[in-house]
Design a protein around this nucleic acid. Sequence first.
DNA 1: GGCCGTAGTGGGCGCGCTCCCAAATCGCTC
DNA 2: GAGCGATTTGGGAGCGCGCCCACTACGGCC
Lengths: 344, 344
Amino acid sequence: MGSRLGDRGTGRPTLEAVAALAGVGRGTVSRVVNGAAGVSPRARSAVEHAIAELGYVPNRAARSLVTSKADAIALIIPETETRLASEPFFASIIRGVASELSDTELQLLLILVSTQRERERLAGFLDGRRVDGVLMVSVHADDPVAELVERTGLPAVLGGRRSEMEPLNYVDSDNLRGAWAAVRHLVGLGRQRVATITGPPDMEASGVRLEGYRRALEEAGLAVEAKLIAHGDFSEASGEQAMAELLEREPAVDAVFCASDLMAVGAMRALRRADRRIPQDVAVVGFDDSPVARHTEPPMTSVRQPSEEMGRAMARLLLEDIATPGRSHRQIILSTELVVRESA
Amino acid sequence: MGSRLGDRGTGRPTLEAVAALAGVGRGTVSRVVNGAAGVSPRARSAVEHAIAELGYVPNRAARSLVTSKADAIALIIPETETRLASEPFFASIIRGVASELSDTELQLLLILVSTQRERERLAGFLDGRRVDGVLMVSVHADDPVAELVERTGLPAVLGGRRSEMEPLNYVDSDNLRGAWAAVRHLVGLGRQRVATITGPPDMEASGVRLEGYRRALEEAGLAVEAKLIAHGDFSEASGEQAMAELLEREPAVDAVFCASDLMAVGAMRALRRADRRIPQDVAVVGFDDSPVARHTEPPMTSVRQPSEEMGRAMARLLLEDIATPGRSHRQIILSTELVVRESA
DNA sequence: GGCCGTAGTGGGCGCGCTCCCAAATCGCTC
DNA sequence: GAGCGATTTGGGAGCGCGCCCACTACGGCC
């Protein structure tokens, strides 16, 4: 019996059904739906009514098939350790990205990659051009995922960079100035033996923060001593361990700049165990200004990174890159800010 | 000039190109790709070689168009306030979901909904059947988003429930027993004036946790007094405020069970301001066992929810529901566990 | 030797859409 | 009133794939 036009498959109305109801051709409906020019007001209105009446929603797969655009971007999080859980940093990034995308037709795909298998799946996924662009955070220097992304030639934006010559577009925070400001603050407090706990050596941010530390000391006329530098991996445990080492190597240490809040938390724990008062005996500054910084005892002075803004900027950059593929290589550096609380 | 088969659009090989190279028909290639039976070893091997040589990856849009499946599920987070940022709970859920999906062909779409506009977009999105199923967390009793999802008839699983008669499938943690265990612990410590700070009244979990509090008190032969019950909204600020009220209404309070860690943090702050020692004067228990619980001073006793496992269970349930749509209404309750630290 | 399975195979059809071109219509000008 | 460009319109073609049906081969059976 008279099965109406476009009423075959899922029962959802098609372009054709709308066209029939509006008494126009498919082309016209398509033009209206896509906001293209060259449609008479009469036709447009007829189509709009038909769309409303039928509750028409374009089929994305069909559109995608012909335009060969995916209408989606991926946010890749290389989920080493259990960082996603403990790093509100990522959550903020996600927020920023999502908010920037919200008046776009683009979908946000979240892709967590930790195992080798997942990496391979990601490769197939990108090769299949299932997304129009890629956002990636927490990249290490020789990150295989980043290299994978680079190979695909897809528009991509990194949060953070792998080196000073990062070939991909990226958004980063001003780690140098942030670290510098933190250490300068410590020096300004009259501290003489200022130590630092760095991040993982294969991350650019670690090196840059260390450099900021160096410069601030040099400017203050203080020596940069190897025994005042300990290495961590951004985790709480590594911070505790590193602080213990520092105390052993230089008992007279009176301040420490940690390249992450989590490490600062660990450091504070080590200090407490060693019966040092914070900040009287040892002043502590962290980096990230994550929520945990407000809850330490005493509340932690930390370098704020505008993480949500970072997410937004990343999304913006990617959008531009997708729109104008030939576009030149770009980067954005967001400024940081020292939030002074009671630990230093 | 001889433009090779399937070499028109994006330059990526198509089924047809693979078929040509392997010297078979499209149907056979399709069968191999989809692991269907009824392909001779000879043909299969030829096709596999051709696929490898060409680096063929199926075009998802085309497949999607004909199967009318989206190959994706959505994780919807109604992002009231700035909870995503501060709630590692969500991050764990995401982790769990992603890990459960990782050996599936399904994509995870993250959808944050806060404004009315975004809600409308979501409606169109779901109506467009752009996903095969929906996961949703943090649902309030009269959540318009949940109702929207319910209307679409899409397979859906909630994290938490809206009422005891939740019509949608859901995964929840055992709030009743969790709260009960917490309060029982406080009573076991000899506390006589045990207060509670509840979550937002329009969330089922709040009511259930309060009920757990009630039962534990009753079992201990203690009266449940209105002045010992204050209401918050899970946020830190609300916890601080509620604790202040409690202290005013009943200065003799010697313990407080908070329905979230964040509120417990706020409560601890209020207690400190009122010069009460924790736990000597007032014992404090939180709920969630979020990372922040380990960093309070003193470290907080809290009820652990298996949030990552919740995410996994949600995904599992949804997968089943997608596979077998007629399936009956199901729910999973995950058990909680009291983690005793120093605050109680 | 003819007949009927059964496993394997090829390819037409259509999913819903955008692209594009030819056709229709309109409004002016001379 | 004819002519011409500009605007608007309809609909064919084809995106890459899964579904399905017709067809071929190959045995084994009576």
